[in-house]
Amino acid sequence: MDKIQVKNLNLWYGNFQALKNVSATFAEKKITAIIGPSGCGKSTFLRVLNRMNDLIEGVKTSGQVFIDGENILSQDVDLIALRKKVGMVFQRPNPFPLSVYENIAFGIKIHGLKYTKDTLDAIVENSLREVLLWDDLKDKLHRSALSLSLEQKQRLCIARLLAVKSDVVLMDEPCSALDPQATQRIEELMRELKKHYTIIIVTHNMQQAARVSDDTGFMLLGEMIEFADTHSIFTAPKDRRTEEYITGRYG
């Protein structure tokens, strides 16, 4: 089933057009990777999906982005609700300078969700279990999140999204600060999470895109050059530019 449909999306930073007529469809409960050289617009594209670009001055967009049938680019969209539904994980894990527990509870509180202590405890536990941190951290819930390893911090940031019941997880280079073993474990986690969540990952690590994703989009100079199932993209791409990029002849 389609979770997200992007139709003729254009985006300008002032006079510079960063996205040119991008169209793509993202399947529900699958992992889609967006690849492309630096500056191709892949992070900009990702940030459109929860309207993060609104925070940048001079940004203008046209086109349509439907998530569960609702055009999230329309003026009357509730941005708080959108960002709750469509969560984001960044390159550098960015836990709050609070305890592990509070990091997860924070999102719930800020979204005005009122729960009893027991329910909140249960949500924290479930969220940590989903990212496979519970066993490591159950006795350290009140330690500062800043004391965790990079990988644990990244897992915690993912757990934070799960706690507020995001159902789309955007990941912008989520492993680029991690070593290969931690990267592999986060990839395994992504495969677990896709049973319940729709994941879109932006990466310039093509091998990671090839390993972990079901579908892949290749972007170049603001255009979505090719979008297909990952097997096709990496074994028989249709566009010459895709082929040149993934074989290392370009970019």
Binding site: Q207, A210, R211, T230, H231, F234, T235
Partner: peptide
């Protein structure tokens, strides 16, 4: 086999 070679190096 081709898929595994291309996707997993």
């Amino acid at each position: 086999c081709i898929d595994l070679i291309a996707r997993y190096q």
